[in-house]
Amino acid sequence: MAKSAFMRWFHRFGSLPYFYGVSVPIARALAVPGVLLAAWGVFAGLVLAPADYQQGDAFRIIYIHVPSAWLSMFGYTSMAVAGVVALVWRLKLAEIYIVAAAPIGASFTFLALATGSIWGKPMWGTWWVWDARLTSELILLFLYLGVIALHNAIESPRTAARACALLSVVGVINVPIIHYSVEWWNTLHQGPTITRFDRPAMDLDMLWPLLSAALGFTLIFGWLTLWGMRVQLLWRERRSRWVGRMLENSR
C-alpha cells in the first residue's frame, strides 16, 4: 500500500504541469531559510568569529570557499543520480534537473577555485599549484562546462539529455578523487578540517558560522536549480497545449 502511494506521488510529481506549479512554493520555502542561514553564516564568519592564530583574518575566506567547494561536489553527484534516473526511467524531470543544475554547479566550482586562489596568494605565496586537489577541482569545472556544451551542441532535446546524463554518470568518478586527493597524494592543499572521524579541527566559534553558511548555500542551490528547471521545462514544452493554456489564463 505504502509503495503504491509512493508511486502515485512519484507519477504525479513527474507530471510536468504539476511540477511547474508546485515548484514556485517549494523554491520559496528553500530561498527564505537559505538566504537567512547563508547571511548569518557570512556575517558571523566575518564579524563574530575570532581571527585564526596562524592565518589572521585571511581565513575568513573559508566561509565562501568551503560551501562553494562542498556544493561543487554535491551538485555533480546530484547530477549523476539524476543521470541514472534519466537513463533508466527516462524521467523528463531528471533530464531537466541535469541541465538546470550544471551552470549553478559550475558557478560554485568557479567560486571554490577563485576564492582558493585568492586565499593561496597570501598564505602559500602562489595563486596556483598543480597539486592533486586543485587539479581535480579544475577538472570538475571542465566536466560541468562539458555538460553545458553538450546540451547546447545537440539539437534533439532527448539525445542531448541522454548525452548529458551519460557524462554526469561517468564524470562523477572525479568527485571521490577530489575528496580523497588530500589523503592519497602529498598536496599543498591542507587535509580535511570538518569531515574527520574525531573532532573537527576547528574552534566552535568558527565552525558554527561555516556550517550555517554551508547549509544556507545548499538551500540556495536548490532554489536556483528549481528556477533553472522551470525555464528548461517551459522551453522543452513551449509547443505543448498545457503551456499555451496556462499562459493564456495567467495573462
Binding site: G56, A58, R60, I64, T115
Partner: peptide, 15 residues
Amino acid sequence: MGGYGAFVWSSYGIA
C-alpha cells in the same frame, strides 16, 4: 581585515 582586506573582500565580492 588585519592587512588581508584586498583578499577577503575580493573573494566576497566575486561570490
